[in-house]
Each structure stands twice: as C-alpha cells, then as structure tokens.
C-alpha cells in the first residue's frame, strides 16, 4: 500500500500513471534485468488495466512504469497515430499522467508502438516500447513453456532452424512475414513483435533503447542500444525484406518507406500509402514548401 505521502492528485484520485508504486517497482526491476540480458524474456506480474489484455496492456505497463512529467509521448498503431488502439491508449495515458502527447516522431521521448518502428531513425534520447502479443518465438515449434525455457537455456535452437528449412522446402520461401525471429547479441532467439521484415534492420545497433512487453503472456524483454540483432537466415538462403515492386506512396511519393496496400474492390485496383503517418505527412509538407 502506498503511504499517504505517496498519494497524488491523479485523475479521479488514481496514482500518477495509474499503477501503484509497488507495481511500478516490480516492472522497473524486471526492465533492468531485461536490459542486462538482451533478448531474454523476464517473467513479471502483469497487472489489470482498464483495457482488455491483448490490446496493448504490456506496452502500456512499461510506458506507465517509466513515464515522467517531462516526457513527450507518441503512440502509434501500425505506424498510424490516429487508429482506435493508439488514440485510446494515448487518451488514457494523458488522463492519468497529464504528459504532453505528440504525433511528431522527432519530438517524442517515448514511443509506444503496435507493430511498426517509425521510418525516421530514433535517437539515443528516445525509448521505443513495443506491444507484444506473442513473446515466445519458439512457440511455433514447441507448445510447452517448460520445454521452450529449456531450449533457450541451452541455446538449443535446432528445431527452429529445421522449421525454417522445411518452410523453404515446402514453399520455396520462409513464409514468416511479421514476427520474423532474430538472434540478439548472438545468444537468444527473440520475437521482435509483429513488425514487418522491413523494420528488422532498425533494431540492429540502434541508437535507442528498445523495450518489449506482453501483458497477457507476462513477459518483458529488451534490446539495448548498439546491440547485434540478426534475422535468422541461411548462408545460401538470405533474409530479405518486403518488395513493393517499384510502387510509391500515392500521397507523398516516397519509395523509401514501408507501404500499406489497399484494394479498391469496385475499381479492381491496388493502392499504396506510407504506413508511417508522421513520415508521410512530413514528406507532404516538405513538398508543399518546395
């Protein structure tokens, strides 16, 4: 229980950043262990929040545990600042912290994200927090938690390699799109959350701290700055990113960003737009100025 001295005038009497201070303490301790052992999944006691599990409660708990009054927060969902999940999370955090919100990637000190990394490289003064639905990359090949824990402990990843090999034999391609498994610090195989392959390279030797949390699965893990992150690949079958076949964003004209594909069923045509809404808007504004 918090002492009276620890109470603050949060919205409707809630503690600053909603979580009680002991909950924050536990999550903070786990974050430090996660940073100390890059790629290792640290178990933690996931708390109840006023949103359903599976809708970003992991990322939310990390954000609420580290956020301070001077932070500027950006929340994105699939690169977009205005989707329902991002808007709801942003409104909730605003209501229990009062911190400034932004859609500008460069201004943000904290970025909470669902399934994308902003196109603009993040800096050493920024922290990105990933919402993770399935933290265990080996679950595809092994249903038992005890067994996957043993596999990580012994770095026994042969079944994962075999799975990738069989995928190539069956499909002529590794069929994993998002959630492509990566090797972190040459030790742990890690699930980078359902970011597209396009974003994997941004994790490698990044300047920012990357924090991952799965609220439903109760796991926290991290990639510190300047840490080796390599996608799993074979010497004769290299990892490759999405190919947009020369298409460009129809709004800003960018050919260097991850594109969302939409299909106009009535006209039978495909359209491409930047997934990163802030990146696209800045490109448009720059074009108008010129």
């Amino acid at each position: 229980m918090n002492s009276a001295a620890e109470k603050i005038d949060g919205k409707n009497g809630y503690n600053f950043a909603f979580l009680d201070e002991n909950a924050k303490k536990e999550i903070r301790r786990r974050i430090l262990k996660a940073i100390s052992i890059p790629g290792y999944q640290v178990p933690f006691g996931s708390r109840e929040l006023p949103i359903a599990r599976g809708w970003g409660t992991g990322g939310l708990q990390i954000t609420l545990s580290i956020i301070g009054k001077s932070d500027i927060l950006k929340v994105i969902d699939q690169g977009c600042d205005d989707s329902v999940n991002a808007v709801n999370i942003r409104r909730f955090i605003k209501s229990v912290t009062g911190v400034e919100m932004t859609t500008d990637t460069e201004r943000a000190t904290l970025v909470q994200t669902r399934h994308r990394i902003p196109e603009k490289p993040l800096t050493k003064d920024q922290v990105i927090i990933f919402q993770v639905p399935f933290p265990e990359p080996l679950r595809t090949v092994e249903p038992s938690e005890a067994e996957t824990r043993r596999m990580h402990a012994e770095a026994d990843y042969s079944r994962m390699w075999l799975y990738l090999y069989e995928d190539i034999v069956k499909c002529g391609e590794i069929s994993i799109g998002a959630r492509y498994p990566v090797f972190v610090n040459n030790r742990y195989i890690m699930d980078p959350s359902p970011i597209p392959r396009w974003d994997i390279e941004k994790l490698n030797n990044s300047e920012c701290l990357n924090l991952f949390c799965a609220g439903r699965e109760k796991r926290i893990y991290a990639i510190p700055p300047r840490t080796s992150v390599k996608p799993l690949e074979f010497e004769d079958f290299r990892f490759r990113i999405e190919d947009f076949k020369g298409n460009k964003c129809e709004k800003c004209g960018s050919a260097n960003s991850y594109l969302d594909e939409t299909i106009d069923e009535a006209a039978g045509t495909r359209h491409y737009y930047c997934s990163d809404a802030d990146y696209c808007e800045k490109n448009l504004n720059n074009a108008v100025r010129k």
Binding site: A5, I8, F16, I31, L32, G68, K69, L209
Partner: peptide, 20 residues
C-alpha cells in the same frame, strides 16, 4: 495535476538507472 515529490524523484532516478 501536481505530482508528489517522492513519486517524481523515484521515476527520475529510475530513468537515469535505466539509461545507465
């Protein structure tokens, strides 16, 4: 919204610790 000094100090100390 006023923030309690101790909560703010703990948060600030943790962020420095996390960065370190």
């Amino acid at each position: 919204m006023g923030t309690d000094i101790k909560i703010a100090r703990n948060q600030g100390t943790f962020r420095e610790l996390m960065n370190a």
